[in-house]
Nucleic acid binder design. Sequence first.
DNA 1: AATATTATTGACACATGTTATAAAAATACT
DNA 2: AGTATTTTTATAACATGTGTCAATAATATT
Lengths: 213, 213
Amino acid sequence: MSRREEAKTFNRARICAAAESIIRSEGMDNLTMRRLAVVAGVSLRTPYNLFGSKTDVLIALLDEAVFKFTQLGSARADGAAMARILRALEQIETFFDSDETYYRGIYAAIMNSDHPEVRSTNVDRAVASAYVLMTHAISNGELRADTDAQSLGRHLAITLLAVLGMWGSGFFSNRESMAQVRRAWLAMMLQHCSETSRPMLAAAYSNPNDIGG
Amino acid sequence: MSRREEAKTFNRARICAAAESIIRSEGMDNLTMRRLAVVAGVSLRTPYNLFGSKTDVLIALLDEAVFKFTQLGSARADGAAMARILRALEQIETFFDSDETYYRGIYAAIMNSDHPEVRSTNVDRAVASAYVLMTHAISNGELRADTDAQSLGRHLAITLLAVLGMWGSGFFSNRESMAQVRRAWLAMMLQHCSETSRPMLAAAYSNPNDIGG
DNA sequence: AATATTATTGACACATGTTATAAAAATACT
DNA sequence: AGTATTTTTATAACATGTGTCAATAATATT
């Protein structure tokens, strides 16, 4: 990496750190571009050069968060697909709980921005992982062989993201959001599961506190 | 109503009409408060006096739309509850199709505004109607007697609104949104349905083009 | 080392939602 | 009719995201 690129990377990091610090100590409302420039020790124009827009700065923060989350998740990518997808939900909830205002803040800010292209990447990411899980579940015999992994995966991913949208707007708690998704997911998976996995899923559906595997 | 109140009502209507006209002929981006004031033939301050904020003006437009929609819906409030709730989805789709850019525009604008209190009323409204339908379905024998109408109704309503949130952001078409909701609703209702209604619901689930009643 | 390229800065400007303030107009009250 | 109250208006202002543009500093190229 050339020294120029190094400097840019360094400045990007400084700006992200400043943004995070402002959000944490002064709240989302006080994250203005002018304040960001001051705290990052940089000119007003620089965040625009390095990121593009305020929303893009927030996206960088979200990406950091997603990265942090996926690192946690991959540590336990074992077990059956149905159990894993439910466990993922719990992990999301725990993750949000660990820093609720911060994550909700950046998520809401991004979703409320009028940069629609953001959401697409978000969705693509989720759809892709759901698809992997579904094919795995099918070859595993957890879902019936005639299941359309593409369509089901997409449906489940969208369910999650749609609820997350409301979560971001502060409409309900981490727990409520995940309960909503869990219930929807279970009902959906019960429509496509094999007889092997049905008992576990049915039990999980009846008991909202059971992880189901 | 006093003449003062009459005048206010009249001005409110004029402002709404102007807003609608601007959105239709110049697009959402050109709906600025200054332009709105000019087109409505009113001072810049007046919309603030009469509505409170730009978002509140848009909410008034949404309310008009909801009113228009409910008038259509109530004309066919007959038949079984399960069929009715599915038919409601179709009606929403048709309604959106009839004026897609307009409805999507105001919905997105409201959702993307940072006035979170808006969403609550929206949700309460939807939860209430879903609850009514669910109790009806239970007493009708379409859903099992042990079904928690409150919880199920709320779940279904949130499912709809969560997807509508993504619809507003332009993420998918009217048809795709409603298909997503329909599928989620059917899977959920299949978890609670009686044996009487199961065949209809199962058939509807398998065939995305079937209204199911 | 001299020159060319690129990144950052600074100062300013613009559009927008929103608020402040005082004057003017409309309405209500007596 | 005359006075008090409420609403609307006009005008200016403010904060914010974002863009422009020239100057300057940092880096790359020769």
